[in-house]
Design a protein around this nucleic acid. Structure first.
Ligand SMILES: [Mn+2]
Ligand SMILES: [Mn+2]
Ligand SMILES: [Zn+2]
Ligand SMILES: [Zn+2]
Lengths: 157, 157
DNA sequence: TTAATAATAGTAACTATTATTAATAGTAAA
DNA sequence: TTTACTATTAATAATAGTTACTATTATTAA
């Protein structure tokens, strides 16, 4: 159980994950690969996703939902999810650099890794909200760093 | 559906969550409250956890597992999970302060919140690993900031 | 005191994921 | 090339965590 073969199914799953920037769920991957291999099964998708992760070719991302999401980029990088529509993008590198400098402090735990996940409004939803705002009273405060209350909005799961 | 009552079940669930530092799962909460209300049902636990979250009295934390975990502290703070035994602790405030200073940069998204989750070895598992190390060859590199490969070790889920 | 609404225990249903199975196909000797 | 060995597959069953439903009880409001 350690000599993996590169089957057409596995290759296609990997290709689709590398092509997209959307961080799809398992069933979204299934929909994508079904276009070329119509009789592939969900079991095969799940099994191959797990193997590709074990091989370090893809990663699973921690998006605060019960549907796992997969990423064709296996290297360390961080994500932001729109609380309005659910869209997930990579976070630009430079936004993270100074953060990384500051977490290597020693305390009781030995830190070996971390997940950083941002929430917010994607460009589209931001614009849509700004448009609505013009018809109303302008607000001042930003809800940043406050109670975690409704952190996740109606953004799909 | 907006006039909540403070029932004994709801009060006990909240009390138990406030007492513990363990960030328990739903079924761990169930085990705790069953000591005082033996015939409480899982449905009641789940329903009340959801209501308490909606009221902003507790929060659900994003721990990269399919079992949700609940926290009696509803205010923004961050967590670290031991990859060896699964234990989850709060992160000390000062470790996070300078990180917070550096994420308010403007880019396409409007950032409204974030999750920060660290992984590592808890004091116990760190000591246990250090003990084992003494009998072997000393290692030099740290696996920090590398491929996300086996980020989660055998730590329970 | 009656009516409306919340909450409960118990149970059924749902959903994402994992495990099982019987069949197929690639690989490695012999 | 035959042979055995093992990885992989599609289909399907099973599992686990969570949510929805139901009939009943308790609390509040008119
Ligand atoms: Mn990504
Ligand atoms: Mn906490
Ligand atoms: Zn959006
Ligand atoms: Zn530990």
């Amino acid at each position: 159980m350690n000599n993996y073969r590169m089957t057409p199914q596995r290759r296609l799953i990997l290709e689709e994950l590398r092509k997209t920037k959307k961080h799809p769920t398992a069933s979204e991957v299934y929909q994508l690969v079904r276009k070329n291999i119509p009789d592939i099964s969900m079991g095969t998708v799940y099994r191959n996703l797990a193997i590709l992760i074990k091989q370090g070719k893809i990663q699973r991302i921690n998006n605060g939902s019960k549907k796992e999401r997969y990423d064709g980029n296996p290297y360390e990088h961080f994500h932001i999810k729109c609380t309005e529509c659910g869209r997930i993008d990579d976070l630009p590198e430079d936004l993270v650099e100074n953060i990384k400098r500051n977490i290597n402090i020693n305390f009781d735990y030995k830190i070996t890794g971390y997940d950083l996940f941002f929430y917010g409004l994607c460009p589209d939803c931001k614009r849509r909200q700004e448009d609505k705002m013009e018809e109303k009273i302008p607000e001042k405060s930003k809800n940043y760093g406050s109670l975690k209350l409704q952190k996740l909005g109606k953004g799909e799961d």
